[in-house]
Design a protein around this nucleic acid. Structure first.
Length: 386
DNA sequence: AACCGACCCAACCGCACGCCC
DNA sequence: TGGGCGTGCGGTTGGGTCGGT
């Protein structure tokens, strides 16, 4: 695989973009779509390389970008997803609609990492820093297992993302016109993609009769291609266990995750901590929408849909989630006492100040992980993670 | 007011990977 | 089958801004 230079740098401008350049790029993309980024600068009259144009567009000019301060929910989501995914900013970004991976990455590096550090939590491992010294006891084994599973899950995510990218391309004719000027291939994977996922992760094992009812909090498209009614997919019975997550105020308050204004409800389990039920839902190739809601999801998050078609066979061990939970909680709580009340990680002058300065600054570590688990539970409505 | 260090973030760099010929 | 191309991604940089002295 030879790698060609991204562009001929001679005579091309670098550095900050001017309003005029922005306007040119914006006007061109809105009118023609970006097409080939390499060819775009010449067509748009820009003295920039295509890569620079692409970055400017994706990180700044794109109309569906939300700018400004991160909300409490977004902060928590970033932290929680980072705990599970590590520095996979693009994967994290898929859970934060209208935020770019670059923005999330910057925010993590400049704010959240330091915040966790102050709390006595290693921002890399999301474990109390003290634990780093306990390399020879049983905890380290658990930690290693946890890390291993997290890595496995991350690898699975990557594979899913690749498959969905493919599916996007293949199905680009499915929905040729969207409001987006981005010319992104639009369309969602049908059942065949479900099988692809299964093949990728089950070594060809079958996932039978699964619909692809999905929902994302950033839904922009309606989609039900070839998706049989849930009642015919074997999902229906269990799907009744899923209720609106945010609509359930107890679930919302329990996790400390607040629904952001303008966002659609998260769909999840009524009992956000009911992991067996959660796992059962997965085992039944969960469609988290309960079959009531329209199937809709954004292009950006289309790949998320793939994971929602997981069944238990995707999971390396039959009780992966339960083990994952056990490890998280045991690792967090085994040798540490917690106040157990406020696990807020965010808030300048809010949760941070409450937590920083406590015993080792990480007295709420168990709740920290609980909040991660709650996110996992709650976000299974739109998450590719589980 | 001037200086300086810390902080922030847009942009760049280079690698990885899939597609296509 | 191999190489070129296009793009995605994560790490890093550097210039602007802010706050303290």
């Amino acid at each position: 695989m030879g790698r060609s230079p991204c562009c001929d740098k001679v005579g091309l401008k670098k550095g900050p973009w001017t309003p005029e350049e922005d306007q040119k790029l914006l006007a061109y993309v809105e009118e023609h779509g970006h097409g080939s980024w390499r060819a775009l600068p010449a067509k748009a009259g820009l003295q920039r390389c295509g890569k620079s144009c692409r970055l400017r567009w994706t990180n700044y000019l794109r109309p569906d970008i939300k700018r400004g301060r991160f909300s409490l929910q977004e902060e928590q989501t970033i932290i929680q997803l980072h705990a599970l995914l590590g520095n996979r900013w693009s994967a994290i970004a898929t859970h934060l609609p209208k935020r770019t991976d670059n923005e999330i990455k910057n925010y993590w590096n400049t704010h959240l990492k330091k915040r966790l550090d102050k709390m006595g939590i290693d921002p890399v491992t999301h474990k109390p820093k003290n634990d780093a010294l306990k390399l020879s006891d049983g905890q380290s084994k658990n930690a290693a297992n946890l890390s291993h599973m997290a890595q496995w899950e991350s690898a699975r995510l990557e594979a899913e993302a690749r498959l969905v990218r493919q599916s996007k391309l293949r199905s680009s004719e499915f929905s040729p016109s969207t409001s987006s000027p981005m010319n992104k291939p639009v369309g969602l994977p049908g059942p065949a993609r479900c099988l692809d996922i299964l093949k990728a992760w089950n070594g060809g094992g079958a996932m039978v009769g699964l619909g692809c009812e999905l929902e994302s909090p950033t839904s922009t498209l309606s989609y039900s291609e070839n998706a049989p009614p849930m009642s015919t997919t074997g999902i229906g019975e269990n799907s009744t266990a899923f209720v609106d997550f945010v609509g359930n105020s107890s679930g919302s308050s329990e996790t400390g995750i607040m629904k952001e204004e303008g966002e659609e409800d998260w769909k999840g389990f009524g009992n956000s901590t009911n992991l067996p039920e959660y796992r059962d839902g997965i085992a039944n190739s969960v469609s988290f929408t309960s079959g009531i809601h329209d199937i809709s999801l954004p292009v950006e998050n289309a790949w998320e849909s793939e994971s929602l078609r997981l069944n238990s066979e995707h999971i390396p061990s039959g009780n992966f989630v339960q083990r994952f939970t056990d490890l998280l909680l045991s690792t967090a709580g085994a040798d540490r006492s917690f106040s157990g009340d406020d696990c807020s990680l965010s808030g300048d002058g809010g949760g941070e100040s409450d937590n920083v300065g406590g015993p080792s600054g990480s007295g709420n570590y168990k709740n920290y992980w609980n909040s991660i688990l709650n996110l996992v539970n709650s976000s299974n409505s739109d998450s590719p993670m589980f």
